[in-house]
Computed example of a mutant assay.
Amino acid sequence: MDISALKLAIQQHMSDGLVTIVGSGLSCAEGIPGMNALASHLCSAMPSLVGGSLLDEWVKVSPNITTYGLEEGLTKIAPSTDLEEAIRVEVGRVVSEAEAAITAEVFAGTRTLRFTRLLPHLLRPSGGLQVVTTNYDRLLEVASEEAGLGVDVMFNGVFAGRLDERETRLSFCRDVKLHKGTSRFLYAERVVISKPHGSLDWYERNGEPVRHCGQLRNVSRLIIPPGQNKYRNGYSSPFDVHRERGNKEIDRASRFLIVGYGFNDVHLETHLTDRIRKGTPTLILAHTLTDNAKKVVSANPNVIALESSVVSGTAATRVYSQGSTDIFAGLSLWDLEQLVTEVFEP
């Protein structure tokens, strides 16, 4: 495949029925700590944050994190409820601080997020652009609003938004047209974001999930930390509602754009990899493809994957397509920002 054919294939891929899957790689590219950075931070910070039996437990758990990484390390020994809560609080704090620094730049007009630059080049169906993300941060929400689009995260309200899919959807209704006795609802252009692992602005209040965009002290965020308990925790509200909506959109997608996602999540894999195996056209962008992602690429000719490479000390893009591999020196098309520049804004 030459570069012109690749660019044309990417342009044609951004068409009807696109569902975008976003993993931590996109947030990392913007400056949010990834799994490696979080693992390093927890290993250095947790001994001063917990004590007594929790410290004893952490001493047993932490070597696995050092050896296997945060995600796999926390599956070796399942943390107790109290230790898991301590991990959740610290992960939420670290990610929130990084997010605040990034959004301050966006607010000041000194920074444009990668996803903001992509959105004008995507078709906008009446049901909204569908995005499924495993990330806790709200950079996708910020990016969408910066692109002039509404954001549907299934919570309706400002101070303590209620989880209500129908009310949230109807809040974007702008008009009703009558034609031959049939009503047609017209909706504002929006991005519909499903977050099966939770979000920094989700909290529990009086036993119910709510959305509050400010900072709350001494209130646990509703985010699912990595580890052995992740699968179980994903079957409680509001995670289950978002997971079900995300999987529903995956099941009816005509094509996938997958950005910075490593194919390591049990909540999505049953539906996502099944659809890819059944031939759904898929474009994967990643700095480095994980082993699981490479298995998906090698087993499915309907997948085009781009990852970083280096040629003679120069940044390059390695492209996998239909069993062949091509390398394009001087281009970093795996990076969403450069992809938009080279493919959509030449």
Rank of each mutant, 00 (worst) to 15 (best):
G207D: 06
N300K: 00
V311R: 10
R166V: 14
L339H: 00
D152P: 00
L186R: 15
T103Q: 12
I327C: 01
T75I: 06
Q215K: 10
G161A: 09
K180H: 12
S254A: 08
V303R: 00
V89Q: 14
S236C: 14
Q228F: 14
L113Q: 09
R275C: 04
G313T: 14
M46K: 08
S144K: 06
I32N: 12
G127E: 14
L178W: 02
E208H: 06
A108L: 10
I223P: 03
P47M: 07
G214V: 05
E345Q: 12
E165H: 07
R184S: 09
F344Y: 07
A286L: 07
G181Q: 13
T75P: 00
N300V: 00
I65K: 00
Y203A: 05
R174W: 11
L118I: 06
E72V: 13
Q228C: 11
G25S: 12
D16A: 12
A286R: 02
K177V: 11
V142R: 03
P120K: 05
N206G: 12
T325C: 15
D326G: 12
C213F: 09
A37Y: 01
F159R: 08
I10S: 04
E57K: 05
V343M: 09
I304T: 08
A253L: 01
Y136S: 14
I3V: 15
F159P: 07
P47Q: 05
A286K: 03
R243A: 14
P225A: 07
L129P: 06
T282V: 15
D274V: 09
I224K: 05
R221F: 15
L18S: 00
K294G: 07
L331Q: 07
R243T: 15
D335M: 00
V303Q: 02
R88K: 09
T168D: 09
T20E: 15
V142G: 02
T81E: 12
K7E: 09
R162I: 11
K278C: 13
R169T: 07
A9Q: 10
V142D: 01
S80K: 02
G128E: 01
A29T: 06
P238N: 10
P125R: 13
I102H: 12
S321A: 13
H197N: 07
F256N: 04
P346A: 06
S254F: 05
A45P: 10
I65T: 02
H242A: 14
V176K: 10
E249Q: 15
T270A: 09
D175H: 09
L8W: 11
H242W: 03
N36L: 12
L38S: 04
A329M: 11
R138C: 08
V142K: 05
P225G: 10
R166A: 13
I223A: 06
S144V: 02
G330W: 08
E204N: 09
S144I: 04
L285M: 06
K180D: 13
L6N: 12
S332C: 07
S312R: 15
G69H: 04
G34S: 14
L222A: 03
D152C: 04
L129V: 10
Y203M: 07
S4I: 13
L149F: 07
V176L: 15
H242R: 13
L122F: 14
T290M: 02
R221K: 12
G227F: 02
T116G: 00
W202E: 04
V95L: 04
G262P: 09
V303Y: 01
H13N: 04
N64M: 03
L336D: 03
